[in-house]
């Protein structure tokens, strides 16, 4: 298979080129992940809070925050990468991270107040504004704080990232459960993301609380692949449902119908989990030489001396 080997060698050379060195900077990857997520959240907030036409002025807070924070984080990244100002990077990040945590926690209270605090029942929890959703801000805020308070090359950093990804999947589990309970799980397929996110939560919590091998991380890759698939299929199904539901424009149906962006949380969290797993894998011993695993092969590829050198 000379063609395949040739392709593999070219890919390895590309990955090892200085222009793509940032791909192996976990701290930078995490910053990009947080900034892009905050930016996407701005669009998501527009859809979500349009349900009640931003009736409460406080509903604009996450919108403005999500619109501004990525710009500031970009400045912070430039400060660190271009201008070598570690302090500016740290301070801006700590500020945005802290604010993000607060926005998320306040959001949970506000969302629960929409119904659950008035009537403490399963019903009000089902139909209240999705109380777990604002925790996305809290999670992103913690990631920013983590990036500045724990060294990125350490195992602890990797475990924290995996823990927060696990928290994300658990949040997804709650969101899917309550959102689809609103439909009474009318279609049995609505259970798929619930089961899928439970699986991800179960598998990802293990590297956080127990010692694992690279083999186990390979298993996690399979589970994460499933999550990505569920997310993409879910995105398509939500769009299809909205398109085929009678009444209103597609935009209006997207607001009041199946939330099209929600399933994309699955592949998004896969990205976060991969950052953590990759970093963790670098600290774990290699598998047996006879049966190298996926992480073994990937890490050996990146570690291989470039043919150009």
């Amino acid at each position: 298979m000379p063609a395949v080997n040739n392709l593999r060698m070219r890919a390895i050379q590309l990955l090892k080129s200085p222009q793509l060195a940032w791909l192996f900077d976990p701290a930078l990857l995490l910053e990009i992940f947080v900034a892009s997520n905050l930016a996407v959240l701005a669009a998501d907030i527009v859809l979500a809070h349009s349900v009640n036409q931003f009736r409460n002025p406080a509903e604009y807070i996450p919108l403005y925050f999500s619109a501004d924070a990525p710009v500031l984080l970009l400045v912070a990244m430039l400060a660190k990468g271009r201008w070598r100002s570690q302090d500016a990077w740290r301070d801006i990040g700590l500020l945005i991270g802290g604010l993000s945590v607060l926005v998320g926690l306040a959001g949970v209270i506000y969302h629960l107040r929409s119904g659950f605090f008035a009537e403490h029942t399963l019903r009000s929890l089902t139909y209240a504004a999705p109380f777990a959703a604002p925790l996305a801000y809290t999670g992103l805020g913690f990631l920013l704080l983590l990036n500045r308070m724990v060294a990125a090359r350490e195992t602890e950093w990797a475990r924290w990232v995996i823990l927060l990804a696990t928290g994300g999947f658990f949040g997804n589990f709650v969101l899917c459960l309550t959102d689809h309970a609103g439909n009474g799980f009318y279609l049995k397929t609505e259970w798929i993301p619930v089961i899928s996110s439970a699986l991800a939560t179960g598998f990802l919590i293990v590297p956080v609380i127990a010692p694992v091998t690279r083999r186990y991380l390979d298993l996690c890759l399979v589970v994460l692949g499933l999550q990505a698939l569920v997310g993409v299929v879910g995105f398509g199904l939500h769009l299809w449902m909205n398109y085929n539901t009678p009444g209103g424009s597609l935009f209006e149906k997207s607001i009041y119908g199946a939330p099209p962006m929600a399933p994309l949380l699955f592949p998004n969290l896969v990205g976060l989990a991969l950052i953590g797993l990759w970093q963790l894998a670098t600290h774990l011993p290699e598998g047996t030489a006879e049966r190298p695993g996926v992480f073994d092969q990937l890490l050996s590829c990146v570690a291989e001396p470039s043919t150009e050198n």
């Binding site: 439970a198 699986l199 598998f203 293990v206 609380i209 091998t213 186990y216």
Partner: peptide
């Protein structure tokens, strides 16, 4: 891969699904 890892993962996942 240790049995403990898989056991914890499956137990947690199953408990969540059962709870749901």
């Amino acid at each position: 891969m240790s049995f403990r890892s898989v056991f914890i993962a499956v137990t947690v996942a199953f408990a969540l699904v059962l709870g749901a």
